[in-house]
Design a protein around this nucleic acid. Sequence first.
RNA 1: GGGCGAUUAGCUCAGUUGGCUAGAGCGCCACGUUUACACCGUGGAUGUCGGGGGUUCGAGUCCCUCAUCGCCCACCA
Length: 973
Amino acid sequence: MTTELPKQYEPQAAQQRWYSQWEQDGRFDADPNPDKQPHTIMIPLPNVTGALHMGHALNGTLQDLITRWRRMQGYEALWQPGTDHAGIATQSVVERRMLEEEGLTRHDIGREALVERIWKWKDEYEARILNQLRQMGASCDWRRTRFTLDEVCSAAVRKTFFKLFSEGLIFRGKRLVNWDTFLQTAVANDEVFHETVPGHFWTFTYPVAGSDEKIAFSTTRPETMLGDSAVAVHPDDERYKHLIGTNVVIPLTGREIPIIADGQLVDKELGTGAVKVTPAHDHNDYACGQRHGLELINILNADGTINEAGGPYAGMDRYDARKKCIADMEQLGHLVEIEDREIEIAHSDRSKTPIEPYLSDQWFVAMQDLAQAAIDAVEDGRVRFFPARYSKTYLDWLGEKRDWCISRQLWWGHQIPIWYCDSCTEAELQAAFADRDDVAFRRDAEDTIWLICSETDLAEDALGGDHKLTRDPDVLDTWFSSALWPHETLGWPEKTESLDYFYPGSVLITSRDIITLWVARMVIMGLYNMGDIPFAHVHIHPKILDGFGQTMSKSKGNGVNPMDLIDKYGTDALRFTIASFAGESQDVKLPVGYECPHCGNVIPQTLKHQKAIPAGGDKPRVKCDKCKQESQFSSAWFDPDPGEPVARIVSERFEYGRNFCNKLWNAARFAIMNLEGYTPGEISESELRLEDRWILSRLSRTTRAVNELLSEYKFDAATRTLRDFVWNEFCDWYVEMVKPRLRDEAAQASSQRILVGVLDGIVRLLSPFTPFVTEELWSRLNEIAPERGLFEPQTAADSCMIAPYPDFPADWQNEGLESEFARLQETIVAVRNLRAVYRIANAVELKLHIRCSAEVAAELNDVASQFENLAKAELVAAGPDVDSPPASASFSLTDADGFVPLEGIVDLDAELKRQQAEAEKIRGHIAGHEKKLSNQNFVDRAPPHVVEDVRETLAGLKKQLESVDEIIGQLSG
RNA sequence: GGGCGAUUAGCUCAGUUGGCUAGAGCGCCACGUUUACACCGUGGAUGUCGGGGGUUCGAGUCCCUCAUCGCCCACCA
């Protein structure tokens, strides 16, 4: 009737078939529905810079898991997809490539052409990324896919900027920024990395004006002498106290600057105790300059050359100027010492060139009130972090309330909607924009120019022919638009139905490194624009590290491509394994290896492999330790030569998921093979056997645990719970126990109904974790048993992913029955153990005598056939009067002793030794317990139930020991 | 320098509010093709729970301290 299932689950076919089917059926679509509760997850938008990595795979798996789970629970579940334009990251990737391949810089081709190229890049990579998400089974509502430069997002950005500007929360100011002289842009702190390089530490002197004295100081950047505004000493430093208030002369330029006292900047014990102060080129000096009202002397042009403030050095590159400053100072007799020293130099993460602290005009958002609102939202519990400890990261950062620099000197992004006019009057502006409520203007802080903010683009001649408007060329920080993600994607500032229904979101799932950059800012902007939090929960998941505990990154060459893993192990295996990683406590190490293309052997990856960069001729190779052949391998540093067999990166960790999927597949395969002649029908209580009631009890308990664990984002525990249940309980015990009934005509109908009912529940439980294999099985079950269920048969849903998520009655749970079952299991294991110890072949039938209470005997007799079935042993006697037959091997449980006559097989000496070892072990446990109980403090102070437990356990152990001793007596007698 | 986290079997990790005779997967050993599955089954071995103090009747779990590792923030004239 049905075609037989293959012995192994074949993921690739199922993945292709079902994903397109789901999309075709609109299964991922989420629309406002008054009859359902909304459940909203906004994707942490991937950058359009490259391909998905393991971090995305983890992040995406968890979001999809929660979305699928909630969808099955009956929520209108939206998973909003999209990508981020990622300002600097994308622009610099495109620029770098352009330079490498064509020798062109952005200045060669101009703004428009560069932006056009980046759009092309974006189209290609966005498509690739979204396609990779699909391969991971992501159930995003693709109709809603957004890109942060989409029209709706632009509108939201404009609106927000305008609102902030109008309310005085956006201002323009001079600030020291991290300047990338190569890309000619400010870069954020998080885009800066520090590298230790060998350098020098120069000590110079400045002569004190009108005196013979000199004051010595040290620096690692001599050219900044050109911009010095003061020399600072510690107010308590006896060496220099008398000089405070006098002036020194900078020999290079002849400029006079004061000696000031600053206890914050200066540490008496360090260096000479005197510090040159360059407020325009050093962050600490800047703060010092603010304290003392020092002049800000900017000596650099945007490209890193010295500007006119540098006098004779103007026009030189800063490093050439450095050499000349040193030479000149030496010639003037002011160079004291050169010391070789390792220096940490800030580098731009994008261009990999050294950063210069640089004074420039930037736009800021005033954070005082905005940050406070976001702090309140977490402190009063409207936004909750899982795990809770991460709220500290969030609160600490927001607590600093540092103004947010939102301007970036880039061409790729949302251009700042500000126009300047330096010639017009207020009256002219008012006249021009009288009827415009989307235009606002004011003077800048220094009262030099008009700042005009508009929600729509203004023409150059918007003020008439006399005045020219020029637009600020800068773009906004990427995070400005992504901060709006949770509401802009739903149509804000329009009051759309979707916005009303899906906002605020349910949970944000992301990794900890963007708690400040992104999570905090979404809360801020959500509260500001919507008057409501963007999401109720924030789940922070672990990071996947390489086998050596390092974060995976392109620059380390230790990345792993999830698509390779999908190819090798299947999507479900990847998802299931990844979910098993995602616990609360720590990051996860993922050792990987190279799969030998010749023999399939996996060669462990070493640090050397990660760093192997081809130098000249041949590409690096990896040697297989099994077949001794060499091959090129997947690497971040080179593409293997065409036609070469390639050792790709795999990880045996994913066999965990693959094997599990296969186990599930085969359990279902077994069931389906045994559903011949299945008829749907009600299952009555009276038909239930011990194993049925047991598996239902376990199923109910498992279901409940999984639902609870998922609601707390404990994916690892949920995964383990399911695996244990399916493999160790359902497959290992239940399926084995029903086998005889399925062959027995009288019992067949009901056992088929129960079996398929339980399997149906398992498949639904697993569907959010492993959507493809479950859907495949679901469709097979729909062919052979379209009506099924516990206890009333119902027509199954067309697709597993829209079937209701299980929520079995709690009253199926039965603790007494489970412990009764546990005794049966123990007994069977004990018999199997004897078989193994005495090497008795399965074909040899054993006889089993059990001494136990009449009550236990009755229970065992009820399931006597299972001893035959599972241990190939016949239960010949059970009860209080059972004696050990001669030449028996035996085992002893808490409330039963078992004897297996093994005439001619059992080696009585060996058996004696085995029992003696057993007795020894029990005595050890007994001693431990007795010690506890003999401690009066324990008996008096420990809770009564704990004491009672210990007493009971001890009694059990003693009884067990008695039996063992008796056996020993018989054996040695 | 400040904060957070980690250190448990050869490897990768679980271990809820202290009650543990410390678990899982992989790997290892022995046996096994019993018609769901060798991506399997059955049985087995393996730990001073990083070191040292303390609190407690009782510590893998709480506190202090040291060591090592990771991440975040700040800073390094």
